[in-house]
Amino acid sequence: MKKFARLFIALLLVCIMTIGAAAAEITVGIVNNPPSESGYREANVKDFEAVFSSENGYTAKTFYSLKNDEQLSAAQQFITDGVDYLLISAAETTGWDAVLASAEENGIPVFLFDRMIDCDESLYAAAVVSDMANQGKLAVEWLIAQNLTEYKIIHIQGAMGSDAQIGRTGALDKQVAENDNWTIVVQQTATWDEAEAKKIVESVINSKEDFNIIYAENDGMARGAVAALDDAGITHGVNGKVIVIGFDCNRWALREVLAGTWNYDGQCSPFQAQVISDMIKILEEGGTIETKLVISEEKGFDAATITQADIDQYGLGE
C-alpha cells in the first residue's frame, strides 16, 4: 500500500510538472560550462539568461559544469523532467549519442551552441557554433596584410586539445609551413595561464633570439607576454618592434588595442541565444529549420580601425 501511495504521488508530481510545462511558457533545459571558466563563458551565460527569460516567455532550467559526465546526467534529467527544448554546450565532443537519442525518442529537439558534438547530424535540430579555425584564419590574414618582410613568431598555445587551441593553431601552422619568410621562434602551451605565458616569452628574450610577432591564443596569455616585453624594455603595438595578437575580445583587451599597445584582437562571439530563440519560435509555429549549421559571425579588431563603439558593443566583461 505504501509503495502504491509513493508511486501515485510520483505520478501526480510528473503530471503537475507536465501540465505546468504545457502552459503558455516554453521550457528549455540549458547545459553549459560554468561562467567562471572565462570571460567568454561569463558573457555566454549572461546572454542565455537574458534571452531565455520569463519576460520572453521561457522557463529556463540551467546546469553548469566543466565535466562531461555531470553534463550528461544533467541532460538526461532534463529529458526526464520533460523540457520542450534541450540546449547544450558540451564539455567534451564525445559520449553524447545515447542522451541525444533519448531526447529524440521523447520528441525533444536539441540545439547545440558554442561547441559541436561528435555525432550524427540527425540527432540535433541545429547547431549554432563558433568557428575557431576561422578565427585563426582571420588573424593570419590580418598578419599577411601587414606585409612584413619577415615573420618571426612566438606562438603561445592554449590548453592542448581544446577546440579553441586546435582552431587557432591550425591556421598559423599552415601559413608557416607554406611560406619561407614565416618562422616560428617558439611554439609552447601555457594552458591559458597568463603567468606561464610570461615565463615562455621571458625564456625567448633570455636566449637573445629575435622575434617580431606574439600570437597568443587568448587575451590573458597575450597580457602575460606583453608584461615580459615591458620588463625587458621591448616596444610593442602600433609603431613598436613587436606585433601583439590576442583572442576573445575581453573589454580590457580591446582597450589595449584602442590604446595601440596591442595590434589585433580576434573575436569569439558568445552571443548565440537570440539565433536559437528565433529557431525555437519557428518550430513553435510549426515551421522547419532550413540550415542545420549556423556559424556565428565573428571578426577581428585592428588597432588602426577600432573605435570606442566597438568596445562597447563587442567587448566582454568589464
Binding site: 591559458w192 603567468a195 590573458g220
Partner: peptide, 16 residues
C-alpha cells in the same frame, strides 16, 4: 604576488 604580476585575476588558471 600572482594577481599583481599582471594586474589581472583569472579564477580558473591562477596558481594552476
Amino acid at each position: 604576488i600572482s594577481a599583481s604580476r599582471l594586474g589581472l585575476i583569472n579564477h580558473e588558471t591562477m596558481l594552476q
